[in-house]
Amino acid sequence: MRIAVIDGQGGGIGKAVVEKFRKAFNNKIEIIALGTNSLATSLMLKAGANEGATGENAISYNVKKVDIIVGPIGIICANSFLGELTPQMANAIADSPAQKILIPLNRCNILVTAVEKKPLPHYIDDAIEIVKAQRGD
């Protein structure tokens, strides 16, 4: 199973996702770090991603080749992450056949109803449970 983790700006969310996924699955999954900038990609690689790529073309190309995409909800919104996530990236992510597991953080003026407000690590745990269910773990 190939999982793309997408993040931008400081890369802290992606780093946390990669660390928790690596701990939960060890080497049973392949994690691709896709950063909107090199800092985000670098942090995700240091956290345990198998490989990483940066920028618009890398994200647009790789999201077609993974089973699951994990990231903050802003990854499907053009110009989120203070404009780092381009319309082409958002479109490629939304159009990807991969299942998307979106973490509902309110950093890009998107409020999701019926979502319990909780800390980031708890949302990542929820994402891990979704992947486990899909794998049959």
Rank of each mutant, 00 (worst) to 15 (best):
R2L: 13
I3Y: 01
G8I: 02
Q9N: 12
G11V: 12
G12Q: 08
G12L: 15
K15T: 08
A16Y: 00
A16Q: 11
V17G: 02
V17N: 00
E19K: 02
K20L: 11
R22P: 14
F25W: 10
N26D: 02
N26W: 14
N27Y: 11
K28H: 11
I29C: 01
I29N: 05
I29L: 14
E30V: 13
E30Y: 07
E30G: 06
I31G: 00
I32M: 13
A33Q: 05
G35N: 10
T36E: 07
S38E: 13
L39D: 10
A40N: 05
S42E: 13
S42F: 11
L43V: 04
L43N: 05
M44H: 10
K46T: 12
A47W: 01
A47P: 00
A47H: 04
G48P: 07
G48C: 06
G48K: 03
G48L: 10
E51L: 11
E51I: 11
G52M: 02
G52P: 12
A53F: 09
G55W: 00
G55Y: 01
G55T: 11
A58Q: 02
A58H: 11
I59A: 04
S60N: 06
S60D: 05
N62Q: 08
K64E: 13
D67I: 09
I68D: 05
I69F: 04
I69K: 00
I69P: 02
G71T: 05
I75P: 03
I75F: 09
I76P: 00
C77V: 08
N79Y: 15
N79W: 13
N79T: 03
S80K: 01
F81R: 00
L82W: 07
L82Y: 09
L82F: 13
L82V: 15
E84K: 01
L85G: 06
L85M: 09
L85Q: 02
T86W: 01
T86D: 09
P87H: 08
P87R: 04
Q88V: 13
Q88D: 12
M89S: 02
M89F: 14
A90M: 06
N91Q: 15
A92H: 09
A92V: 03
I93N: 03
A94D: 02
A94R: 13
A94P: 02
D95V: 12
D95N: 14
D95H: 10
S96V: 14
S96Q: 08
P97E: 09
A98H: 07
Q99K: 15
K100E: 10
I103E: 03
I103Y: 06
P104M: 07
P104E: 09
L105C: 05
N106Q: 14
R107P: 10
R107W: 15
C108S: 14
N109V: 11
V112D: 05
V112P: 09
T113I: 15
A114V: 04
A114Q: 06
E116I: 12
K117W: 12
K118C: 13
K118G: 09
P119H: 08
L120R: 06
L120C: 08
L120K: 07
P121L: 10
H122Q: 14
H122N: 14
Y123P: 02
I124T: 06
I124C: 01
D125P: 07
D125C: 14
D125S: 15
D126Q: 12
D126K: 07
D126M: 06
A127N: 02
E129M: 06
V131W: 08
V131D: 00
A133Y: 11
Q134C: 03
R135A: 15
G136K: 13
D137K: 12
D137Y: 14
